[in-house]
């Protein structure tokens, strides 16, 4: 469906939607106030919107959306909100600037960029909700200090997937630096530590047994074989 709305008309439609959400009825002066324009401009714009079948507006009465108009308004609203969120929540600009820049960006960006921006924002929102990633916090830290944060992990916490992984996930020939050994595995932990699997030690997966398990790692210059079950307890940083 092509409405070919002008920037300005889009802004009006969005304005009407915002007003309709705040008030029970939408009056012309509310729209004028929201858009910060004079009444005659509003009247002209409304005329165009009526022609396009997006709203209905009888003289001296309230403005209401047609079904088509409501959908379009909602789409515009969501788009605006996404861009606003990206600016305000993720980049962390002030609310005022975010609102202003969102108005500019939403019209100028091509659809595919906007689409990706939407997805990215959604992803970041979700990930911070689930706690899977610490990008938002880390970015904040980076903004404040100019440094990439050193990551502290609590037990049972979630690791950053791109950097740290259990040794069992390294492929043949890959190396990793031991970060820590998981807790709650009883004496196995101490055994691994005393055999040299202390943080900072570099290990390399040399071989995988013919049946896929166990694996053979090179550590402190000797070969050690571990089942994946055991290797899973050793957290390494890929190098």
């Amino acid at each position: 469906m092509e409405y070919a709305l002008s920037e300005s008309l889009e802004d009006y439609l969005l304005g009407i939607f915002v007003v309709s959400k705040q008030n029970k009825v939408v009056r012309l002066k509310d729209i004028a106030k929201e858009r910060q324009v004079k009444l005659p401009s509003v009247v002209n714009a409304l005329k165009e919107l009526v022609e396009k079948g997006l709203i209905s507006h009888e003289r001296y009465s309230y403005v209401t959306f047609t079904d088509k108009g409501l959908n379009e308004a909602k789409r515009l609203y969501d788009r605006h909100k996404t861009v606003f969120k990206f600016l305000y929540e993720i980049l962390g600009v002030t609310e005022f600037i975010a609102e202003k820049d969102a108005h500019r960006m939403e019209h100028d960006l091509t659809a595919s960029t906007l689409d990706l921006l939407t997805k990215f924002t959604e992803f970041m929102e979700m990930s911070s909700k689930i706690g899977e990633s610490r990008f938002p916090e880390q970015f904040k830290y980076f903004m404040e200090t100019g440094k990439f944060p050193e990551i502290k992990y609590e037990e049972g916490g979630v690791m950053e997937k791109t950097k740290e992984k259990p040794l069992s996930e390294l492929k043949r020939g890959e190396s990793g630096k031991i970060v820590r050994i998981k807790k709650g595995i009883g004496a196995l932990k101490g055994k691994l530590l005393t055999m040299g699997a202390v943080p900072g030690t570099v290990v390399k997966v040399k071989k995988v047994a013919p049946l896929g398990d166990p694996i053979d790692i090179l550590i402190l210059g000797y070969h050690l074989s571990l089942r994946k079950e055991e290797a899973e307890k050793i957290i390494v940083q890929e190098i």
Binding site: K191, M195, D216, Y222, H223, S225, L226, R227
Partner: peptide, 9 residues
């Protein structure tokens, strides 16, 4: 029992 076995040269 866990397998933590050295493969000697």
């Amino acid at each position: 029992s866990p397998l933590v076995m050295e493969l000697p040269p």
